[in-house]
Amino acid sequence: MFARISKYIIWGSYFYFSFLLLLITLQYIPYNTDVAFLRIKQDEIALDYYKIAFFTHVYTSIFLMILGFFQFSKTIKRKYINVHRWSGRVYAVIILFLSGPSGLVMSYHANGGIFSKTAFVILSVLWMSFTFLSVYFILKKDIINHQKFAIRSFALTLSAISLRLFKYIIVFLFHPQQMEAYRIVAWLGWTFNLLVAEIIIIYFISNKMKTRKINQ
């Protein structure tokens, strides 16, 4: 019962925060280079390659939230494996060719100096690598490793939410200067997620392997 309720809470908040991300995305529709986050990125947005990277990132990343839901629903995996496969392909293509590389370009220009730039560069490199490995292992039919890397990849996808959530919490509790908060969440936003991902991997996947061995 408890597990069930917490499951609904998790999915509920997942959709709530995805919706907030959608609102953030909608700020940039119609195309406008002088709104929201871009107000403090005027030097960068003047660069053509940054402009392309930014809007690619903003317009494509939002779909990952819906696609990610298709990837991890057990019902879908069990009954509609084709939905899982196709949404997974789209998810991987978006990260490997659109969202990921554009994120890497943007991280080079991140606010907050070298400290946060490093964080975002590592984030985008890991994000693409994990996604690639997840695809690689499923092509090799290695489901366990596929799952491990898929969980890690999705954990980093969720940093879009956790970064903002951490910022909100930190500002609420400590009222730091704006950039200070940004530097902290640049690291905390994804390292925390990765930590949770590893815990999930250890508990769930190793449990699964045990039960599989018993069954054999």
Binding site: L20, A36, F37, R39, I40, R164, L165, K167, F172, Q178
Partner: peptide, 16 residues
């Protein structure tokens, strides 16, 4: 002004 508005709009909110 850009930083002032950005801070006012987003500082204590989820968005950015």
């Amino acid at each position: 002004l850009r930083y002032e508005e950005n801070a006012k709009e987003y500082y204590d909110h989820f968005g950015r």
